[in-house]
């Protein structure tokens, strides 16, 4: 405790106002950078797809009506049988051909042994090809989307923003847990060359659901 008081006292002494320009308050800080992009929804989606493919992620597009069929197709094409999913993922997403395991606090070993994981997401930023997980019931615990080698993310078009500041404008209340994912696990530690796949999922697939193409039923 002694260190805390001493340190704070020396920090107060070091930052006491001594004349000159009065330091700016937080709200007075200038933010002259671009906050919102100008792209239309379809251009935003196109940019996100370009960025994701640039990171070596696989991308498919579908409509709300065909989501179930698309998931089944993508999973079958991957050849993976044993997939884990978060507790809150809609049952209607899960096709019969796959062995889906809901994560009810499963052991680390069980999740590690799965062929892949499917989750929803909270938002995607087209400009940098980033997908944000806030780890709610549809996105699962953090390790769920980490241990398996394949991560399949279902993203809705209404969740896609163009710039990073637009993302932060959407989530004014700071989420407690966030993982921002930009492509599969990678490293540039060997001769500064980005190579795919070290510890996180080496394969990333994204299904984009075009909500705007939703037909009233």
């Amino acid at each position: 405790m002694a260190t805390r008081e001493k340190l704070l006292a020396s920090l107060h002494a070091a930052t006491t106002f001594r004349g000159g320009d009065r330091p700016l308050t937080y709200s007075a800080l200038a933010r002259p950078y671009i906050d919102a992009g100008k792209r239309s929804l379809s251009e935003r989606i196109a940019l996100l797809i370009e960025r994701l493919r640039g990171y070596d992620a696989e991308v498919s597009e579908t409509t709300p009506q065909e989501l179930h069929a698309t998931i089944t197709y993508v999973v079958e094409k991957s050849g993976r049988k044993q997939l884990v999913v978060p507790v809150g993922l809609p049952a209607t997403w899960l096709g019969p051909a796959t062995n889906w395991q809901r994560d009810n606090g499963s052991a680390h070993g069980t999740i590690d042994a799965a062929d892949g994981v499917m989750t929803a997401a909270s938002c995607a930023i087209a400009d940098s090809g980033t997908i944000a997980l806030h780890h709610g019931p549809l996105e699962g615990r953090r390790l769920l989307s980490l241990l398996p080698d394949w991560h399949l993310i279902v993203l809705h078009s209404c969740q896609i923003v163009e710039t990073l500041p637009e993302y932060f404008a959407r989530f004014v209340e700071p989420p407690g847990l966030v993982t921002w994912i930009s492509g599969p696990s990678a490293t540039a530690d060997i001769e500064m060359t980005r190579i795919k796949g070290v510890h996180g999922p080496r394969f990333l697939s994204v299904i984009i659901v075009h909500d705007e193409l939703s037909r009233p039923t």
Binding site: G129, R141, G176, L177, V178, W180, S182, A186, G200
Partner: peptide
Amino acid sequence: ATGERMNPYTSLWTGVTPGDG
């Protein structure tokens, strides 16, 4: 740092989350 639009992973956590981490 690395000449990327975004690094592959950024994690943010707040104290302790029961059942996660």
